[in-house]
Design a binder for these strands. Structure first.
Lengths: 153, 153
DNA sequence: AGCAAGTGGTTTCAATTTGAAACCTATTGT
DNA sequence: ACAATAGGTTTCAAATTGAAACCACTTGCT
């Protein structure tokens, strides 16, 4: 059997998250969940994707603990999909992706949406990576270390 | 013709980046590029992916300006793939993804790699989202606004 | 009660995509 | 000269995708 390449058991802690999300645009479901969407139909309308595919994606996200199903609050027999704490942890990924998008994908002069702080209505700051002592770090200033390296540093 | 769903022209600035990267695990190529990998063969060995697929992914990343090809410095006829500035902008996405992975995907007691500041060798800080005035923001504290909203706020 | 409409899916099936292996073309190394 | 290595492309079977049809259950209306 030809197996789809999966990085499920990969050592790398970037590969595993990617594998859990499963599909690039499953993140759009997560984004919509952050926007308050909860019902199957709402996601379907928002994403315009085939129902069978949406069904599979939602199932996958639930299986990986990113979404969970809860009984519908209106007492109907249906359920709703809400973010778990793990799912809410993807907030930073979405912010990073969005800021990258704002920088490189907004057409010239094109009106676009961006993230603002609800309280002030002003745009949020750009993400920054900081060292433990607070120094601002650029891409080249970091490396990966394993547990053993950390112990004797 | 059955078209693969694409969010290329989507208004949303999360969808467009996703579409540019193309494939979830193309990010693994970008991660490897951050780790200093440059040659086709290096990527292939690192990712263990079929050569035709890697070839297509590299071509896509180059087409979207995330990688660029440069002549090999050793004078050979081959070229190397290096991150553009746009590509380096994905650093924050990778950090966000990795921190999420560190939190939710590291097995109990399992040794894992994580990001450290090269200068001190100590782990970097967690990403935080801040308002313009510096307040720390949680997932629910932001919303999207379009250009017009910004103008009159 | 009878019936249409809405919600939340599953099934079917053709088209597309994927990926392993084979192949190709240059450039080294010996 | 010959084999090996790098960097791909081509081929083709199997897997995935997605549009449309279908199904089951609940409302709402008359």
């Amino acid at each position: 059997m030809v197996k789809r390449t999966s990085h499920h058991e990969a050592d790398c802690l970037i590969a595993r998250p990617l594998d859990a999300i499963g599909d690039w645009w499953s993140l759009l479901i997560v984004r919509d969940a952050f926007d308050g969407l909860r019902r199957f139909g709402e996601f379907q309308k928002s994403l315009g994707v085939a129902k069978n595919i949406l069904s599979a994606r939602l199932r996958n996200l639930v299986a990986h603990g990113i979404l969970e199903t809860v009984p519908a609050p209106d007492g109907s027999a249906h359920h709703e999909y809400v973010l778990t704490q793990k799912g809410r942890g993807l907030f930073y990924v979405l912010v990073a992706l969005r800021q990258w998008g704002e920088t490189y994908f907004s057409g010239p002069g094109e009106p676009y949406t961006f993230m603002v702080d609800i309280e002030s209505g002003r745009p949020i700051r750009r993400l920054e990576v900081h060292a433990e002592d607070g120094r601002l770090l650029a891409p080249g200033d970091t490396r990966l270390a394993d547990f053993r390296n950390r112990e004797n540093s």
